[in-house]
Structures are given as C-alpha cells and as structure tokens.
Design a protein around this nucleic acid. Sequence first.
DNA 1: GGATATACATAGCATTCCTATGTATATTTG
DNA 2: CAAATATACATAGGAATGCTATGTATATCC
Lengths: 148, 148
Amino acid sequence: MIATDLTRLGEDVVVASSRLNRMATRDVNTLPHAAMRVLGRLDELGQARISELAKADRCSQPTMSNLVQRLEEQGSVRRAADPADSRASLISLTDAGLAELNSARRQAGVALASRLHQLSATDLTTLQAAVAVIHKLLTLEPLEDTPR
Amino acid sequence: MIATDLTRLGEDVVVASSRLNRMATRDVNTLPHAAMRVLGRLDELGQARISELAKADRCSQPTMSNLVQRLEEQGSVRRAADPADSRASLISLTDAGLAELNSARRQAGVALASRLHQLSATDLTTLQAAVAVIHKLLTLEPLEDTPR
DNA sequence: GGATATACATAGCATTCCTATGTATATTTG
DNA sequence: CAAATATACATAGGAATGCTATGTATATCC
C-alpha cells in the first residue's frame, strides 16, 4: 500500500528525521544551535541575503543581522555586495565556516556509524537510497495538491 | 556495494536529514526552537530529568531549569517527583504540550506533502522504509566498532 | 521625479543563557 | 553510623542574544 496519506508520511518523515538529528548531534562540540543552522543553510544555498536567512530561521531581520555580524567577526562567514541590488549583501561560508560545519558533521557521522554497523546490509541500502530521495525532494518546489 | 564507510553514510544521512528538517519547518508557526527541541525529546523519552535534557540539548543545567519552568507555567510540561530520587524531578509533556508538538508536526507534514506527491511511488516506498529503519536505529546503543 | 517599497543597520529594551553558588538529598567511607 | 563527598536542582547576577521601532540608502512604481 503506497502512501495513501502523504501528509501522514510527511509527518512520519519529519519526526524520524528530527529524532535522528537529535541523536546524532547529542554529543557534538559545535557553535550554538542558531549559528549552526545558519552555516548549514549557507552551505546548502551557496549564498543568501540576511533577510532570507532570517525568514528561513524564523527570527527577526535585526537578529539575523547581529548573528551574521558575529559569524563574520569570528571568520565563519563572509559578506559580499549583491551585484543586482546594492542595498543587499550576500552572505556565504568562508573556508573556516565550512570546516566548522564539516567538523560537526563528522562528529555526528561517527556517532551514527557506531549504530549503523549494527544494521543489516538491506537496512543500510535503504538509508542510502533514502538520502538520494531526500536530495531529490529538496530540489522540488511545493505544489499545491495532487496534479490530477 | 554496501556502505564500505559507515561514517560517510552517517554524515550523508545527517546532512540530508538536517536539510529536510529545515525545509519542512521553514514556514511553521511554533514556539522557539529551544522549546520545540525539548518537547520533541520529551515525546520521545516519555519523561526525563532536567539535567538529562540539558545535556541532550547542550545547554547548562540552570538554562534548562529555566526553560522547563517557563514551559511549565505555560502548560506544555509537567513536573513530577522522581520516586527513586527526591532531589530530582521528572519532566513530561502535558496534553497541551503534545498538542503543540502535533500541530508543528502537522504543519511540517503538510509542507512536505506538497513536495512528496511529485515523487514516484518507488521513492515514497523508500522513504517509508527509511522511517522504519530510523526507528530501529534509534533504539540501538552505540557500539564501539565493528563486532568482528 | 516624487512617492512608496525594500534591504539592512542601529538603538533601546526584554528575554534568554551562562557561571558561580546555595540547598537538599544520595552515596561513600572510615 | 557519622562525616565527607557527590549529585540534582534552584537562585542570583552579569553577559549574550533576541525583539520592536526606527534610520539610511537604494530600488521600484506611477
């Protein structure tokens, strides 16, 4: 029976992935949560405007301005002029910021691996396939409802 | 070829699931991030001590004390005496807290569903299977290395 | 070209978070 | 079993972070 209720599947996926994230990042040594969310998003997007980051993280624009300033001073993030709009600035990761992110990911990966090796080959294959599906999902635009 | 490098698979899974979470919860109307993390963890664990929650969320014990107090005043969380240790208290979700969590999940589920219906039946089945694998994974203890 | 809108910064105040420490209970030890 | 030590949480006070309101510069619309 294939996903008769996609909202239900969506909820299941979100719950599972939230729990997985909490488990994997439990004993990880990183910057504060808010900073890591921004770094992760910048890695995903390449570059982004301040107001775009604020909306995505559900904080106010001044709060994101402030966070970006701190990340900039600390060297994790860089600010460039937006060629298309001189009011805006484009934020992107520096090498140091990417290293910070990769360190956190590696720690989380190790924590996960210590459990993954207890799974069957079939289960591992399923996870690998799901990673590919998720990447596909991330490139899709939200469409209102069933195309039918 | 099956996961020759489990740490690598672990990292891939963490990155994918972080991005998925950010996408799904982008336009969700909820309590602040820190509060939602605690509610999610309580739902997962049933009940937990303050210091346990603090460690899991990588914040100080007084910070978690404070957050729990606020969640308690707000009615999302309840505090019970620990029968095994009268210094400790056991925190658990109230019905209102669970409702708060479920509302957030539903919103995220809907956001996901608007993309899920663009996937093939095969991909949906993969996600469904991955949810089951993740739940299995969450019950495992971390074991040092390959059992061999 | 003037009016309105947008992107970000700054200011000032409110909330949250941390370190240090206090209190009560548990556990260990001589 | 009493004293010493450890643990679980609360409180206090200062540091950091977040928010609303508003300012400045640029963009867009009529």
